[in-house]
Design a protein around this nucleic acid. Structure first.
Length: 107
DNA sequence: TTAATGACTGGCC
DNA sequence: TGGCCAGCCATTA
């Protein structure tokens, strides 16, 4: 329990993302001290569907909803973000820097 | 048990 | 300027 795995750390960080904020795979991986493990973060998101994790708040470095294809609906991820006040155009977050939440700074 | 994959990123040619 | 390769950890077959 005390020793959480890489995945669990990802879940913790993602669940700590405040409302109306988003982050990137690299930011989480970097926060965990593994900039090269960004792929694992994405893979954790795949498993996050089983967990209560707002995976829709996690996007790639470009603010692009690359993982939206893994959601139930085609634009479910987009609607969830728009519901939080985030504008999405062509599966891409507008003003990504404005909505970006860096765990390194916040945590 | 071994090998391959997976919603990414950064660097190099 | 644009495309390709390597790295990371965990899960699945």
């Amino acid at each position: 329990m005390t020793e959480v795995s890489f995945f669990e750390k990802v879940y913790q960080v993602v669940k700590l993302i405040p409302y109306g904020k988003v982050t990137s795979y690299g930011a989480i991986a970097n926060y965990l001290g593994a900039s090269g493990s960004a792929r694992m973060v994405g893979w954790a998101m795949n498993a996050s569907k089983k967990q209560e994790v707002p995976a829709h708040r996690v996007v790639n470095r470009n603010g692009l909803l690359t993982g939206k294809h893994h959601f139930d609906g085609t634009n479910l991820m987009q609607q969830l973000l728009e519901n939080e006040g985030i504008e999405i155009v062509d599966n891409k977050i507008q003003n990504f820097e404005k909505h970006f939440w860096d765990p390194m700074k916040e945590l």
